[in-house]
Design a binder for these strands. Sequence first.
RNA 1: GCCGGGAUGGCGGAAUUGGUAGACGCACCGGACUCAAAAUCCGGCGGGAGUAAAUCCCAUGAGGGUUCGAGUCCCUCUCCCGGCACCA
Length: 822
Amino acid sequence: MSSDGQRQYSPTAVEEKWRVIWDERGTNSFTTEELERSQRPYFNLMMFPYPSAEGLHVGNMYAFTGADVHGRFKRLTGHDVFEPIGFDAFGIHSENFALKQGMNPMDLIPRNIENFTRQLRAFGGMYDWSHTVNTTDPAYYRWTQWIFLQLFNAGLAERKEAPVNWCPSCMTVLANEQVIDGHCERCDTAVEQRRIAQWFFKITHYAQRLLDNLRHIDWSETTKKAQHNWIGRSEGATLHFPVRESADSDTTTGTNIEVFTTRPDTIFGATYMVLSPEHPLVDVVTTEAQRQAVAEYRSDAAKMDLVARQKTDKTKTGVFTGGFCSNPATDEAIPIWVADYVLMEYGTGAIMAVPGHDERDFEFARTMDLSIVRVVAGPEQDADTPLEEAYVGPGVLVNSGDFDGSGVEDGKQAITAWLGERGLGELKVNYKLHDWCISRQRYWGPPIPVIYCDDCGPVGVPEEDLPVLLPRLEDFQPDDSGVSPLARDEAWYRTACPQCGEEARRETDVSDTFLDSSWYFLRYPSTDHDDVPMDGAMTKMWLPVDCYIGGNEHAVLHLMYARFVTMVLHDLGHLDFEEPFDRFRAHGMITRNGAKMSKSRGNVITPDDIIDRYGADTFRTYLMFMGPLEEGGDYRDEGIQGPYGFLHRLYETVESAVQGGAEAADPEVERKIHQTIAQATEQIPNLQYNTAIAAMMECLNAIRAGGRTPARSEIEPLVVMVAPFAPHLSEELWERLGHDGSIFDGSQWPAFDPEKAKEDAVEVAVQVNGKLRGTIRVPVGTDQEAAEALARAEDNVARYLEDAAVRRVIYVPNRLLNFVVG
RNA sequence: GCCGGGAUGGCGGAAUUGGUAGACGCACCGGACUCAAAAUCCGGCGGGAGUAAAUCCCAUGAGGGUUCGAGUCCCUCUCCCGGCACCA
């Protein structure tokens, strides 16, 4: 109590009080029955965190606050908001950290989860703690393994030996998506190539659907665009080039080399052929004389790490195989080369080189002194215009036999059809998307539920035997063998074949963490059901997710895999929808004092410190006030004073109103309140939190103007509108205002009354030739004649109109009046 | 190179989608309260001219254009951030 009898706002005390009350009353959690019987279900999702040893960072807080504000707003407007949280606790992060600490992740993870839970409660998330998931819990990963089996049984999981990205530091295989610029996403070590047998999910089978659905899902444009590019559809043709016995002989060997090209129209300019070093036909076409040179080149390419291999600015290298093939359009013999600028992973691993109209081929042809032919003439060019560089623009075909004069686009169709008549070409769509390698030669993940039997081959673990428990290993250090540490636990991997009962061996690889996170949202509503991954009724009630807010760093990994897994489960009859998230919004990044936050810079904000000092409510409000959620913002240490003062003044104002405020509402103030209601109601669902908060600040300033103490009815709507941002404080003030129960129960969001918000007079700008010369205050809806008369009476306006002829008058009612003179 | 997003006071950011640029907040300056400081409250705050007021000029990355009127639309350019990248 302070001397004047009013209580002081103590964020720490208020927040602690309401955390306890929420828990006691179960304010934020649903019982199983409540989940089953919801009237207006709303599934509000945020990206579950990886529980690091460092604890929650501001980036997490920012995202979670943005999502939590959304959930709380939906709840205040009468929805049953299900807002769960969980822990994505498997994976290389935890494993590496455990190795460094000399601890077992099985001991480390529960500790981290405990700390995260404490922080998530402290920040005031509206989490349903009775429906949480932990990916490392056998009760969860049992179903992750079940999902593997669904794909396995449907023929969508495939074991194949493939060149993979190998991180020599993490000693494991990485997905293409985890290789950033030739370096390991986690430790930044240069990645090498290796060939290992791996399990792949055939996501490429879904490429077109994943692409098509982007058109109708309500997602952030940036995220959709990233997925669009990642899928990388391109239309072209597969063309067949018959291999010849020799340069001078017309005889073909019967072998064809297939190429994928987006420019079949330029085939008359294909003057040589290039195979990637890994291409299986290299040995077939290489002549005896060139065998050694080719072998050396291939072995150099194999040794090269992916960084060096993928450098686009290095000079092109290659070697002639000695072999020739026929250009199917010209029937001329063209030489076959091997060069590492052709990648085995895309298309067919072979290209027809058209140096005249492809920059890379041009560069290679120049280096190797190969012939360059023009087959497209752009504007002001003809068949003989010399080529100083590759011409990739539009034009008409030249030097192309019967197709001369045809446009580039028509030529593509016509030439492909013409080659097709001879069985040498067909239209083809290609995608950049690769199949998803889910095998990891590590310890800390769910074992892939497969048993290898000498007689039966790979056999899926029967569903009733799930989960395949991850054994506790004391030595889980990965090694250079390319095999998971689980291969050291013989008692674990030795088992009987489920089909024939003979001695067999378990798969010792574990699955990718992205598999864990590809379906966690499907699990949340069903955590009360141990016997199924997704309960039918719960899934029908709550899914798909209504709103998902998260970081765009997951645009092409997590979000693509979640869509894929959902689509597969739909096709297999487990779900009745094929897109998991109705709405997705990517939040922006936050910086501190204009600089990126990073541990190495030492400028990372520790949420615990800020919350201790200012309270979670102030922290939340400030984070949301910094800028638009979708654009991010800049955290300035002094800036938090604004929201801090705002919440203090709100507290004081409510206190004094309760002690005895004004008898009746002031119409001016009431107008401001309703204008604020209108603005907040419109902007909060659009995630324009910064401007909504600004409006509330203005509203409080208006309420307090002139040191006035408002009536309770005047301050109450503001307390509700602030609730999504400052939930603890709002509960406290709601109670002080004499209400029982939670402010979040019973749809308290204030109703907007347009009549009360209406202004009766407006300022109209008066311009002469577009320059502001005065303003007039007029009743709303004043007509031009009246406004003009008033404006002409203004001294400063009259001055400019004196000796000028008014040619035109532009009147925008309630806004502006412009005299055009001249 | 390609794709996406930006550039507005000392700073973070507003601007009814073509109609009074700078809301709200931070920082700063002045004042009140105080023995003093903190906290709080009141006032000021883009630049320039003007003793001041009135008023005028300039100003939304740069340059041009459309328009009665442009931060907003069109063209050209510069820089910054994010993603993809020898993808045939």
